[in-house]
Amino acid sequence: MTTDDTGHTSTDGPAETGGDTELAGQQSPGPVTVFLVDDHALFRAGAKAELQSISDEIRVVGEAGSVGEAVAGITRMRPQVVLLDVHMPDGGGAEVLRRLRGELPDVVFLALSVSDAAEDVIAVIRAGARGYVTKTISSAELVKAIVRVSGGDAVFSPRLAGFVLDAFAERPGAEPISDPELDQLTPRERDVLRLLARGYAYKEIASELFISVKTVETHVSSVLRKTQLSNRYELSRWATDRRLV
């Protein structure tokens, strides 16, 4: 199979035949298959080179520079993890998520952006991404994040943790809570988020709160679920007011 017809160079030759579809969505012992979506070719090239060189845990199986290419490429390659740029023409990362989430529930999306604006971050998380990291992240950290989301965890950068805390904050005069299950964080979840925002790693959070790393992961996943499903005014506002730059 060649990918020239859709205009993106997909893989290095030998990796191509390695049975991408078989790997789809499974926790295989091999490297995590990653698909890059970014409208800047320069960034794609840099990220690909760095990801491949820094670790053999990652294998970049394809890349795309637009929403259309991304949808076609991801559907065909079935990577385990998609690194998704938030800002692209034609709707950006949220649009890719919207088109693919239902179809490919096994593919995990990790949003990657320079924006750092709350509305972008929240919008793409609510569209279904399992994490958000900024492009200034070090390559080693990025690899860790990719491996972690491929295992089903959520990845919250300190900044995302801050946004989520802010969105769930109890404010005087805020809208009444309609669904306590989804619209409020438990005290424990709040503690975990605060420590995340302070730059703690999961292991450090676990020892700080005297809980297991597994429990930390559970709390973070639960926060992610609430962020995606809650109808809190702050969250929906960020999702709808989103403006592409």
């Binding site: 924006s115 750092d116 604006a117 709350a118 900044r159 801050g162 946004f163 802010d166 969105a167 404010r171 702050e234 403006r243 730059v245």
Partner: peptide
């Protein structure tokens, strides 16, 4: 550049009300 793009009076943010998150760099 971030301040210019995403800041409170930023180019990319037409109106951001006071309850919005204060992204530090923005």
């Amino acid at each position: 550049l971030r301040a210019w793009l995403y800041g409170p009076n930023g180019y990319g943010t037409p109106t951001r009300d006071s309850s919005g998150n204060r992204d530090g760099s923005g």
